[in-house]
Nucleic acid binder design. Structure first.
Lengths: 357, 357
DNA sequence: ATTTTTTTGATAGACGTCTTTCATTTTCTT
DNA sequence: AAGAAAATGAAAGACGTCTATCAAAAAAAT
């Protein structure tokens, strides 16, 4: 059990000076191919790994990371902002600097402007909730070329050579919701009402497909009504759903697969408590849905686990900033929360819980 | 946005020499109370935080951590061993050395002997799957006093001043299982068979209580048969359960709350596939239960998320080793896995998957 | 063969902390 | 007040890496 090898050891083993070895590992150029190969070989034979702590110390390096999130009345991203703040606060003095940028939601133009503005601001990494659009891909590419490690978050963007994507498996999320609903209908017949958010988002489409797939294959006795499009607007969802429930009293389950959750929650709250309530599955554990589940207005929440997403985003950005080989993480597995396994919400201070959609 | 303060800054601010400030932060003694107070004040007013990377560098510190796990044919702890190995392998050259010790399961004497042997071996931290017994508590106390950060894992031990406990909320896990079962029986009447592991373990008792609590309160139409005691032995569970199912064809749900899972799985596999299968909930996602769920023999698995437990154990040990104020983490929330949200098992190499109980 | 260019070596200082040593000052004893 | 004990200061070297500079050697071009 000897000391871990240092760059000096590498240099010695390669038969070159420390300076040359350094030129190789830091890609400074001006090294003959022959020497480069020798150093490489020495690195491998010794299993040398750069001591990042020492490197950072020598440079007084401070990691600069940024998050670019959609602004606006959205419970999920509000929650995510909280979680980021909390995460940063708990990292103790770790030479990490984090900024969060809010961009007009689903506005390609605004997003690209922001991204261009961020270039040359010397960020080590950026985690971006993207819109899958060529212009956005182009802006992200430009950032990457200016040396920023770019991670797409929640929603992927088709762009080359990003440091990674962190997001949930939405098809699996939809399947999970479908199975929960199917289970709750037991062998019985039931009728499901699905509420869409906006049609345009790919993640919603994937969830829908997942739910429909499982319901059709494993629960053929369950009827699936044509989905309602709530356009992510709580009040609209509320009125549409109330109307639907009047017209179709046979509805035994409701699946809300996007934003506009609070419309569903309000509809449930408005029902006579004596009537049997439809089995109700929503997405994303936020203050709203948590309260709804605690109050018995909703049965289950499928969650994309933003804490995990944030952790992974940091890990990816940091990895890239440290010039480490990037590890493929795979999609995040959706979590199921019932009334009984709600995580405690220690990370949200009492005086700043958002209460809009 | 200035440089983060160093100990030299603290010394200057306190009006003492670097040496004195150092004597204070490293508790070397030989410092007058007056000076100590001045340094403390300076630390607080500047918000000084020791640069751990630099400290470790100067000492060539290598963290030595150990895990003490019960040996024997136990799918869950086999899985945990895998996860630890995987975790260690993915931490890149991080000056962390990890050893895993196997101890005869549920043998207080053996555990204490091992723990005493570990003292003086200069560990920075130990994560111990404990048995709640005064002798074990005493052994852990001795370790702590010899300067080891002791974390209890999975099963807590009543001992003072440990660095923390990492484990799942077993009552919540039981409640969650109970609710899943209740949901799957819908408004209908159903009959639940519970299979215990050993009676002695507190975690099993808590799960049982949780399930019974939720079933009684929220699903009064569901009948709960008297639990079977399988003593954690697969074959015994299998024969007892098969017999029970013959005697009670009205059983519509099975809840296995401990080890001996493979007995339940084999019983399910042996049934005529044409017959409707009871709704089946087990604990701990291992190779066995994963296969069972994929094969449609089991409906849900409640998991204590050992990856998270390992991460937290490392975090706690490391925190204590770095002399940072310990943060209370709270219990882990049990996860629900259905067929549709199984996490990918990338961490388990194909050629070493255990297949016993 | 000489000049130019490229490649290499040697070395020194910095980052923030820990450890150790030795000299000096202050405080306490009696 | 003198001696003993306690407290403090000053400084240097180490940890592994980065950056920079300058001289020397080797290779390429003319």
């Amino acid at each position: 059990m000897l000391r871990t090898p240092t760059l000096s050891d590498v240099a010695k083993r390669a038969g070159v000076s420390y300076a040359t070895a350094d030129r190789v590992v830091n890609a400074r150029g001006g090294v003959a191919e022959r020497s480069r190969a020798k150093v490489q070989a020495a690195i491998e034979s010794l299993g040398y790994v750069r001591n990042i702590a020492a490197a950072n110390l020598s440079q007084q390096r401070v990691y600069r990371f940024g998050f670019v999130l959609p602004a606006g009345e959205n419970a999920f991203f509000d929650h995510m902002r909280q979680l980021i703040r909390y995460r940063v606060a708990t990292i103790p003095a770790s030479q990490v600097e984090v900024q969060v940028f809010d961009v007009d939601a689903f506005n390609v133009q605004a997003l690209c402007t922001e991204l261009h503005g961020l270039r040359g601001q010397d960020f080590d990494g950026l985690a971006v909730v993207g819109i899958d659009h060529p212009d956005v891909a182009h802006a992200l590419g430009a950032l990457r070329e200016s040396g920023v490690a770019v991670v797409t978050l929640v929603s992927d963007v088709q762009a080359p050579a990003l440091a990674g994507y962190v997001g949930v498996d939405n098809f699996a999320a939809g399947r999970t919701a479908g199975r929960l609903i199917g289970m709750a209908q037991a062998a019985n017949f039931g009728t499901v009402q699905i509420i869409l958010g906006s049609h345009v988002l790919r993640d919603h489409a994937e969830r829908l497909a997942g739910a429909q797939f499982v319901l059709a294959r494993d629960f053929p006795h369950v009827t699936v009504l044509s989905p309602l499009a709530g356009l992510d607007q709580g009040p609209l969802v509320e009125s549409l759903l109330a109307e639907r429930l009047l017209l179709h009293p046979e509805i035994t389950a409701i699946y809300g697969l996007g934003a506009g959750n609070n419309g569903i929650i309000r509809t449930m709250a408005a029902r006579l408590p004596t009537l049997p309530r439809p089995f109700c599955v929503l997405h994303e554990l936020t203050t709203d849905t948590r309260h709804a589940i605690e109050a018995g207005l909703v049965d289950a929440v499928i969650d994309q686990q933003p804490e995990q997403e944030i952790d992974r985003a940091f890990a990816l950005m940091r990895h890239a900033a440290d010039r480490m080989p990037l590890q493929n993480t795979g999609l995040i597995t959706p979590a199921i929360f019932l009334r009984d396994n709600l995580p405690s919400a220690t990370h949200i201070p009492h005086d700043e819980r958002p209460d809009h959609d």
